[in-house]
Amino acid sequence: MDRAPKPEAPDAFAAADLRVGRVTEVLPFPQAAKPAWRIRVDFGDLGQRWTSAQVTRYRAEELTGRLVVGAVNLGRKRIAGFTSEFLLLGAVGADKHVRLLRPDDGAEPGDPVA
C-alpha cells in the first residue's frame, strides 16, 4: 500500500492555522461520552477559546498554565451541548494515550507553528 503524501498535502497542511496557546482553565465535562476536560486556552491576540479534549490522563493542575498547540481555524464543533472552538494537538501512542504537543521555552501565546 502506497502511503506517499498526495501532491496537495503540503497545501492542506499550510491551510491549518496552528498556534501556541496557554491553558487558562480546565473544567470537568461529565456530559461527554468518553472522559474529557473542557479546556480554555489563551491564544494571545486571537483571544481565548474553548475546546473539549480526551486528555484526562493529565490532572487539571498539570494542564493549567501549560503551553499547548492548537489548530484554530477548523471551525466549531458541538460536543454534548458544548461548543469546541479549536483542536488541541497531541501524539497518540500505542497505548492510545494522548500526549500533548508542547513548544519549547520562549514560545508565546499566539505564535504561529511552522
Rank of each mutant, 00 (worst) to 15 (best):
D2R: 12
R3W: 12
A4V: 07
K6M: 11
P7G: 03
A9S: 13
D11C: 05
A12L: 15
A12C: 06
F13V: 14
D17F: 02
G21L: 06
R22A: 08
R22V: 15
V23T: 06
V23M: 01
V26Q: 03
P28D: 15
F29M: 14
F29V: 02
Q31M: 11
Q31D: 15
A33I: 10
A33Y: 06
K34C: 01
P35Q: 13
A36V: 05
R38M: 11
I39L: 09
I39G: 02
R40D: 09
V41P: 00
F43M: 04
G44S: 09
D45K: 14
G47W: 07
G47C: 08
G47V: 09
Q48S: 14
R49W: 10
W50C: 03
S52Q: 09
A53V: 06
Q54A: 13
Q54R: 15
V55I: 15
Y58S: 01
A60E: 09
E61C: 05
E61Y: 05
E62P: 11
E62F: 04
L63Y: 01
G65W: 03
R66Y: 01
L67M: 11
L67I: 09
V69P: 00
G70M: 03
G70Q: 03
G70Y: 01
A71H: 12
V72M: 09
V72D: 02
N73R: 07
L74R: 10
L74T: 06
K77G: 01
I79C: 08
I79Y: 01
G81R: 10
T83G: 00
T83Q: 12
F86M: 14
F86W: 12
L87H: 10
L87C: 09
L88T: 04
L88H: 07
A91L: 14
G93N: 08
G93L: 10
A94N: 08
A94M: 08
H97T: 14
H97C: 05
R99E: 12
L100P: 07
L100R: 07
L100T: 08
L100E: 03
L100M: 08
L100V: 10
L101G: 02
L101S: 07
R102Y: 00
P103Y: 07
D104I: 09
E108S: 14
G110Y: 08
P112T: 07
V113Y: 10
V113H: 02
V113W: 13
A114H: 11
A114W: 03
A114E: 12
